[in-house]
Design a protein around this nucleic acid. Structure first.
Lengths: 195, 195
DNA sequence: TTATCTACTTAACAGTGTTAACCTTGTTTA
DNA sequence: TAAACAAGGTTAACACTGTTAAGTAGATAA
């Protein structure tokens, strides 16, 4: 295994276990039996390393979603499955999920924006599904791309509230998730008989 | 003005202008013409100072929402206004908004959880409105508290995607917001004629 | 053999949060 | 009046942080 890979593995491990704050260059290097400066031979700086981790995390999430796709099902069913999978993945790998939203482009000015564009390819996956649904079934889809982002945003919101421990202790988490999914999906269904 | 207030003002200014990363104890102290250690006479540590800022930010957001309440309007109208106000506030004061979600309780173990409970009082404001709506009008409200959190989560998701610059450049921001609000509100309305 | 390239190291810079110990000042108490 | 005390600040230091410039050992190529 190359040192580059080892750095990625070790830093991911630290990041997931102890969070970003504890992920220091010297600590990573130490666990690779190497000096901190060696990391700079493989990554431009800490942001660069972080970005590599972000890309990996997004890829993992994307894979989790792709695995669950089933074109034989109706679009609304697929959306529900996607929603559940998204939330489930995020709650199962909270630290890894949060990496995705950890950094904003403007805070990494050194970084080419195209890197962040890759990140968006996952949205387009969603967009395709929604678009197809809009054509074939009764989904309320003005612009599939916007709808994809809307869905994504709402899912992220739900996850975010839970992960940030902002949920009231009186509310059972499962019930919250159920109701949220219910609400979110409802937004996509066309009312059969508009008043 | 007491030093404590001055510290709060200065650090908020730095936080809003340069972000959390640039907000260092020595920098804050310097602008107050004081040594860094003096801050520790008024705040337990940096987290404590941050928490004070979080509380202020939440209070601001809460005030913005309260100002816009209008019981003479229908509940669904009120929800729409609240949604718009929430998003508008967040986009107008992005740094301040993000402070609210910056820290998780578990990352501030020194901190009493009751502090974070205060934070939640704003949710309850929303919950009340939704509950009243559920009783009087056709709002789909199983549990008003859960509905409040669901609404909150979805709004935060929308804001989060925009602030994190994750929105596709092909999507006009206004259009995204409109569609998102549309989707979110739809989740609360009871279908008149269920199939 | 000499030169070059690769992968690493050492040493250092400038910055961070935080603490212990000290000093001044004004107020309270004997 | 003298002594004790507390409030609000200071200096110096510790143990970290990301990052860079310069140096070094070892393999490879001319």
């Amino acid at each position: 295994m190359s040192l580059r890979e080892e750095i990625l593995n070790v830093s991911r491990e630290i990041l997931i276990k102890d969070g970003f704050g504890k992920m220091s260059m010297r600590k990573i290097a130490g666990r690779c039996d190497v000096t901190a400066t060696s990391i700079y031979l493989h990554f431009k700086n800490k942001d660069d390393l972080l970005l590599a981790l972000i890309e990996e995390s997004i890829e993992h999430l994307k894979q989790a979603l792709i695995e669950v796709l089933d074109p034989s099902k109706s679009m609304i069913e697929q959306l529900e499955i996607l929603a559940r999978t998204y939330i489930e993945y995020a709650l199962k790998h909270p630290q890894e999920y949060e990496v995705i939203y950890m950094v904003r482009p403007e805070e990494m000015p050194k970084y080419p924006k195209e890197k962040f564009r890759d990140v968006r390819s996952t949205y387009e996956l969603l967009a395709e599904i929604i678009q197809t649904g809009g054509e074939n079934e009764s989904l309320d889809v003005k612009s599939s791309l916007i709808s994809a982002y809307t869905l994504w945003a709402q899912l992220h919101g739900v996850v975010s509230v839970i992960l940030n421990k902002r949920l009231d202790t009186r509310i059972p988490q499962d019930q919250f998730i159920e109701q949220a999914i219910n609400h979110i999906l409802k937004g996509f269904v066309i009312e059969k008989t508009p008043a």
